[in-house]
Design a protein around this nucleic acid. Structure first.
Lengths: 200, 200
DNA sequence: GGTAGCATGTAAACTGTTACATGATTTT
DNA sequence: AAAATCATGTAACAGTTTACATGCTACC
């Protein structure tokens, strides 16, 4: 299961459920998401199986923190998950499901609205990622060469996010132009007069 | 829920659970997936709510088919789902979760293996999609202009798949080169001699 | 005193996967 | 006669979401 793997990976450093939720929203939301309740429950189930251990620590603000650490058994489970063949097929992009059927609504303005949301979301993600590049550069004057071992794999994932969001942004902009042309011409999208479009 | 929406969308034409599973594997697997059992169950629950109606029809091959049709209530439910704000955040790319932590395994060969799988998968998808372009072109000599209304939204989704898979393919190839350089140089990846890398 | 942020969690409902079970027809 | 394809489904389990419930501290 991916969530278990991610939690085991993150617990290389001790962390509370709350900390992990923050990491999730900042780092992993680019390709995975999880609710707080799910994180707490999964941590508990990992503890039952001995993959993590917890201890409570008083916190300066608010109630006591329950801090989890990865155990030796947890390291084994992590390596096992890393060896497993990846879910190349488990891809999930919810907005495409809606876009696919938006012809049924017969309102191009709704299509444009969805595309603008997708575009803005990708643009925002890109800004966040491009901001991170500054941080990589600060830690390493030879960037992107001379990457230290610990950063290498996260950096590959980071670059995936960059190219994915660039591609999505460009696609959304092209698509918005197509929609605009279609709306102007009343649904025929630059049809050559001598080649009329079948409308059935 | 996206699966319900997709089923309602597909049931513009009458279809059996088996037909829908085929559509899923061919068209939707680029951004969503579902098992047969889930499709059958969801169809049953949609029927209970009156969004679809079914009738059995003898089939020339094999047992009788249970063919589902979208009802008027189903049309309403579909439009409602299309109006709902999209899950811009529900993105899920399982292989990135593994890649992120693959530094823990400390075996770049495993990283290269995963990247090759991702690359080959994207290349295969691209070939399928580029094959579809021939079909679009056959049906329309002005392609990609003069797209009929029914095809417009699926075509937007199709183009998303094209650009996404191109981006992934290029990223995977770049990443494989980085991994190869890193393996050659024993983990330092083209470090400038006067600027040694910290390895902690 | 109210709100925002820190911090924990439970319960129920829903969604998704894996494994199994059945049986007809066509092709090899 | 066996295997492939067509076709339907159930049961058990695993994973995820939504809604709720609690309580502390800092700041306005």
């Amino acid at each position: 299961m991916s969530l278990e793997g991610i939690l085991l990976g993150l617990l290389g450093q001790p962390a509370s459920g709350y900390d992990i939720k923050r990491d999730f929203d900042q780092v992993f939301s680019h390709f995975w998401s999880a609710e707080q309740s799910q994180i707490y429950r999964t941590l508990q189930s990992l503890e039952k199986r001995g993959c993590v251990a917890s201890s409570t620590e008083p916190s300066p603000k608010g109630p006591a923190r329950r801090v989890y650490r990865r155990t030796t058994a947890g390291e084994g489970a992590l390596l096992e998950w890393l060896e497993a063949s990846p879910g190349l097929g488990g891809l999930r992009i919810p907005y495409l499901a809606q876009l696919y059927f938006l012809g049924e609504a017969d309102e191009l303005e709704r299509t444009a609205q969805l595309l603008r949301q997708i575009r803005d979301h990708a643009a925002e993600r890109l800004m966040v990622l491009e901001g991170l590049e500054v941080l990589w550069r600060e830690g390493n004057p030879n960037y992107p060469r001379g990457m230290i071992d610990e950063d290498f794999h996260p950096h590959l994932v980071y670059e995936h996010g960059l190219s994915r969001n660039r591609a999505t942004l460009e696609w959304a902009e092209r698509s918005l132009e197509r929609v605009a042309r279609r709306m102007e011409r009343g649904g025929s999208e630059s049809v050559v007069p001598s080649q009329p479009v079948e409308t059935t």
